[in-house]
Nucleic acid binder design. Sequence first.
RNA 1: GGCGGCAUGGCCAAGUGGUAAGGCAGGGGACUGCAAAUCCCUUACCCCCAGUUCGAAUCUGGGUGCCGCCUCCA
Length: 501
Amino acid sequence: MPLKLYNTLTRHKESFEPLEPGKVRMYCCGVTVYDYCHLGHARSYIVWDTVRRYLQWRGYDVRYVQNFTDIDDKILNRARQEGSTMQEVAERYTQSYFEDMARLNILEADAYPRATHTLDGIKRLIHELEQKGYAYPAEGDVYYTVRNFPEYGRLSGRRLEDMKAGASGRVEADPEAQKKQDPSDFALWKAAKPGEPAWESPWGEGRPGWHIECSAMVREAFRTPDGTLADTIDIHVGGADLVFPHHENEIAQSEAVTGKPLAQYWLHNGMVNVGGEKMSKSLGNFTTIRQLLDAPDAPDPMALRLFVLQAQYRKPIDFTEEAIASAKNSWETLQDGLLFGYQYGKQLGWTDTDDSSFGNPEYMRIPSESEAIQRFQESMDDDFNTPGAIAILFELAKALQKEGNLLIHQGEASTDAQTIREQWQTLVCLAQVLGLEAKPSAELQQADSPTDAEIEDMIQQRQEARKAKNFAESDRIRDELKAKGIILVDQPGGITTWHRS
RNA sequence: GGCGGCAUGGCCAAGUGGUAAGGCAGGGGACUGCAAAUCCCUUACCCCCAGUUCGAAUCUGGGUGCCGCCUCCA
């Protein structure tokens, strides 16, 4: 069964065939570093991180590259506001990006090209476009001649004529409009105004337009071993709001020069909505990742990850209190399953629970033909159907939950230890493919935690109170132990068992 | 106005021709002094209308509603 993915370019699910067998070249459009990332960013990068992990799990050697846009009007404005520099602002939010993503268990890319480090490549590309007749200078700016690229609009499924109506009105207010030969043309290079950061170029001091950096970065980041610039990569991803004009323009820039497709597959993630509306900076309805995760009663970052992956990546998701609350509870269930081995492994007679490799998926050998894994792969192969994949995780987690409960309450499981072990390891391995991981908390033995003997003693006292039908006293003892993390379970026959919560 | 997408139980969400996965939240029962925990059971004809078919949530046409893009945007 092949992996299928929905290609925005064709608007169909297609079988995935990398250019080079076994290898995947994947580029993700990153952030403009002028503010903290919000939940929209979180979704996008969780989704693409998951896609990357899955491709790797499928055996592909993936090169994953994601850029930082560190030259931009918005960064500049921010710097002006706070009397800082573009570089300083960009650096700060680049760092905050890494911090936020690490919390969400998003793996680092293989390379993080930045606009400020790509100036040579950008200028070379603009020069080539100029030579081939796709670009023209105008008063220090350089624009792309959209009319000369017949394929323009193919990715976003629109024609130039159709866009005119909506674009008028706005375009006329745009000061750049005077310099453009056509309203659809877009800037490749912008002349610097006095006091703005600027780079030398054949067209005068200035800075690159937004779209050109990605075209230049893809060429350089995926060079062949002999140093030849890359023409085509396998997968290009980003938010659905980048389809037009950003990705459309990237295609126009790159393909006009190379004559080859920029990417074989274009994948786009759906938006995060708030009250049915897109979460965005301009609407002001955004919540930053750190706001959510640092709030009192904040969800575990994995709960946020779960919230995102519980919807298929192309569909919009609504960010609500209720949804997060639900995700928190869901994560509890999954987390208990992931920690099962740490909690019950010894009791089941597993001999390796103290090994340093215990719980590490890399050391787990699970039967790849198992039903759970087959179904997991089937779901994920269908355009990364993470909700379907997560359902399998829950089935495993619930089965383990049941066994754990039986172990606590009856002292033995209903299945043999080896089968349970396989279930647990399967769960841990598959969850890791989705980036969902639970780490055993380092035995936070509270200082006031009573010893086993003390607990037994108190249970004995409570037993006597119960015999005397002094239930107020027996309940008091039970509550006292509960406050110390000891849960009592009264069994039929007057036996009381206990465990630490 | 143009282009595209979505509409499944209280909430979220899979399923794309054979009579509805999963999560969250509920309900009932067993057990219990009570509770907790545990165990068992349980909740949908898939927006509307018409059509194709032996059979449609699933295909076709029409309608309604919501959303995204067309301006910076993940």
